[in-house]
Computed example of a mutant assay.
Amino acid sequence: MSYYEPLVYIVPPEEEGFILKTVLQKRLMVSRKLLSRIKLTEQGITVNGVRQYINIKVKAGDRVEIRMEEEQSEDILPQDLPLHILHEDEHLLILAKDAGIIVHPTHGHYLNTIANGVVYHWQQAGITCRFRPVHRLDQETSGVLAIAKTPYVHQQISEQMIQHQVKKEYLAFVWGVVIAQSGTINEPIDRDSEQPHIRIVTADGYSAVTHYEVVEQFAHAALVRIWLETGRTHQIRVHMRHLGHPLLGDKMYTLPEFEHSLSAAEASERLGRQALHAYKLGFVHPGTREWTEFHAPLPADLTVLQSWLQESK
């Protein structure tokens, strides 16, 4: 049986006499579900190299180690695809995702996904990991994508997301002249009962909060910086449409006044996708316990769009 590199914690003097379970859950932030899973492995939890029950008391200086079995995505076919790697360590793989590629295989779409490329990359590097993206990006959205290499890392970042501690920033090109240079959209979102694949702002929906700031105003459009407090499906696209400024190239959430305009048609033809880019992702790194941020520069298609909009002023 093979294991990932152990997670190590040295008990400080002030935690002398703590129950091991408390150390694991309160200091290492191991969830109850993951803790139950680790306990089942042969060498899951050890203190000073000896397997222990989690109800023992620890002493200052004790070396607590957690080991998790190596996993791999046996249902994902390896495929040699270009990957734009921003960062990789034993805990995480951070990519700059291209627009037009989906993250995970779906029914009838088993190849040409980020997952296929990542599994191939790890196979070539001799790395045994299961493909675990810690968040989602739409097929047409480009930008920073984080992939966890172990269940612990995935759980740690997921918990930060639940606590709204993960920083997500986007750049979007939206239609119209945005009067308020910055603002917050606090409107609940849910599925459209008549078209379940579409989300709408509705009073009885789920809480959704989006902040925005105008970076550059053009003649008929604007570049805005957007950051989220919540992560609802299509949240940015739905909220910006609700504000009266749908994203350029977004056919699903456009508005009639922009849908048939010549400038909209030309922009959509130039772009071929919604003008949304996940520019920045920040969180406390589960390995170093330090705040870490990753940035993906504006891709070529959006840079060209920005130049065209500037010239159209």
Rank of each mutant, 00 (worst) to 15 (best):
A296T: 10
T106P: 00
C129G: 03
P196L: 06
T288H: 04
E290N: 08
D250M: 04
I101L: 04
V178P: 03
P297A: 14
H220I: 03
S142L: 04
S2L: 09
L243S: 05
P78A: 14
D80I: 09
F173W: 07
L262P: 03
L28D: 02
R32V: 10
Q274K: 00
I85M: 08
D62K: 00
Q160V: 06
A115S: 12
H104D: 15
Y212E: 04
P256Q: 03
E5K: 14
I10F: 00
E71Y: 12
F283C: 10
E159C: 11
V201Y: 12
H242A: 09
A278S: 14
T22R: 09
H260M: 14
I147P: 07
E5S: 08
E266R: 02
Q163A: 15
L111C: 03
V174H: 04
A265D: 09
H239A: 12
R225A: 12
I200R: 13
V50T: 14
F258S: 01
L305I: 13
R232W: 02
E90I: 11
Y253I: 09
K280V: 10
P82Q: 00
L281P: 01
L83D: 15
R225K: 15
H164W: 14
G143Q: 10
E5P: 01
V209F: 06
R51W: 04
P105N: 11
K39Y: 02
Q163P: 01
A264Y: 10
G183M: 13
L281R: 06
L137K: 10
G126H: 04
P12C: 05
V8S: 02
I38G: 08
L40V: 03
V209M: 07
P256L: 06
A148R: 03
A208N: 04
H135M: 07
H91A: 13
H239P: 03
D75C: 13
V224Y: 10
H135I: 08
E216M: 06
L171C: 10
T202E: 12
T46E: 06
H277E: 02
D98L: 11
I54G: 06
Q217V: 06
E71A: 12
V284T: 13
S73W: 15
I185R: 12
S73C: 13
K59I: 00
A172Q: 01
W291H: 07
Y253L: 05
H242Y: 15
V214R: 11
G49N: 08
R37N: 03
Q235P: 04
Y152M: 02
K251E: 01
G108N: 08
H285S: 08
K149A: 06
E257W: 12
I198L: 13
T303V: 08
A264Q: 00
Y170A: 11
V134E: 09
V144I: 01
A96C: 10
G272F: 10
I226C: 06
E90V: 11
H220Q: 15
L223Q: 09
Q181E: 04
A221S: 12
A99W: 01
W122G: 12
T150D: 01
F218P: 03
K167E: 14
V177Q: 12
A264M: 02
